[in-house]
Computed example of a mutant assay.
Amino acid sequence: MNKINWDDLKFFITLYESNTVSVAANRLNVNYATVSRRIDRLEDALKLKLFDRTKDGFVSTIEGTLLYESSVGIREKITNLKEELSPNSRFNQNVKISMVPFLAEYFVIENLHNLHRRFPELRLDIESSSRNVNLSKLEADIALRMELPEKGESICKKLGAIDYVIYGNKYWLNKLANNESVNIITYTTAFSHLQECKYLIKKFSTKAIRVQTDSVSAQKKAASSGYGIALIPRIVLDVTETNFVQPTEEVKRDVWMLTSKKTASHTPKILIMEELAKIFSQELAIRQSALATP
């Protein structure tokens, strides 16, 4: 143990959490060879094999998992110690937030700017993605999702509910109002389990589908271009837009904020989580009520 370079543990922890050397190197801002060399040196010092090298990446051995569970707390203690010893730099940390694209594009980024003005040294790494990031492996510090994870040890907090409306140009909305056949724009098959997708298919059937995409922005663009109607979140509309109606059955989806126990105690993360809770509590209802059905 006396031969261990303790900085190598940072490389080990990062690789354990990311599974691949390339991802670990990117997170650590070093090259591929540096990560590989550090892991080899740590294994030599411990006389243990910490990873099995496979075609799918680096898979931890039992010894690697035991070392991770024993050493991951060191990182948290060092981070907390840095905050205590250098209070002026406690906000100068990268905070990665993962969220579905429409939340980033139409709501969160613009509203988080007030916090950034107060703490300009904060660094936000916003991943706009529908994939479920692994918080326990620190693929993100905070995640905003439209449904709760089926497994994991995330800390979850409900932030609010998003209303959905039927959007389209006047031609298709008139056909809808007259109970005529309409074309629909919805998600790709991979997202057919979503509530908004189920509503459209149940009401209009799969035969009515003309455009499928995994992007709310693309669905909105397709609807405004005349491909048909789409069921989209109310908050993606401009306050001046009137080409939408309420669905016959109310469609709402909850927004959840998820984090892990490993990051929930860090000052920058706490600031951002508190700000996100305030934004959804104060701004979401205002934004949705401003878009009253015409």
Rank of each mutant, 00 (worst) to 15 (best):
A104E: 14
L115D: 06
S154W: 02
P120Y: 06
S86C: 01
L112P: 02
F91P: 00
S129C: 07
L103E: 05
M146A: 00
P101L: 10
V95M: 04
K96Q: 12
R145A: 10
H113S: 11
I97W: 04
N111D: 05
A140D: 13
I97H: 01
N92I: 00
E121L: 06
Q93V: 00
V108I: 13
V95P: 02
G152Q: 14
S130A: 07
E139C: 07
I109S: 12
A140T: 12
I126C: 05
S136L: 13
D141R: 08
V100G: 02
Y106P: 04
L135V: 11
A143F: 09
L124W: 09
I142T: 08
H116M: 05
I109N: 12
R123Q: 10
S128H: 07
R131M: 08
R117V: 12
R117Y: 05
S136C: 05
F91Q: 01
P87K: 07
V108N: 01
K96F: 02
M146R: 00
K137P: 02
E153L: 14
S89Q: 11
V133S: 11
P87D: 11
N111P: 03
E84A: 13
D141L: 07
E127A: 15
G152V: 13
E110G: 11
N88I: 06
F107M: 10
R117A: 04
D125P: 00
F107E: 10
V108F: 04
L103D: 06
N111H: 14
R117F: 03
F102H: 08
E139Q: 15
E153G: 15
A140W: 11
K96E: 10
E127T: 13
L122N: 03
L115K: 03
D141A: 08
S86I: 03
S86P: 00
E150D: 13
S130W: 08
R123E: 08
D125C: 02
S98E: 13
L103N: 03
R90A: 00
N111E: 11
N88F: 08
N111C: 03
S154K: 06
E105I: 07
E139S: 07
N114V: 06
V108S: 04
R145F: 02
M146D: 01
P101N: 11
R131F: 08
L144S: 03
E153A: 14
S89A: 07
L148I: 15
R131P: 00
S89T: 07
S129V: 10
R145I: 03
L148H: 02
L103H: 04
N88W: 09
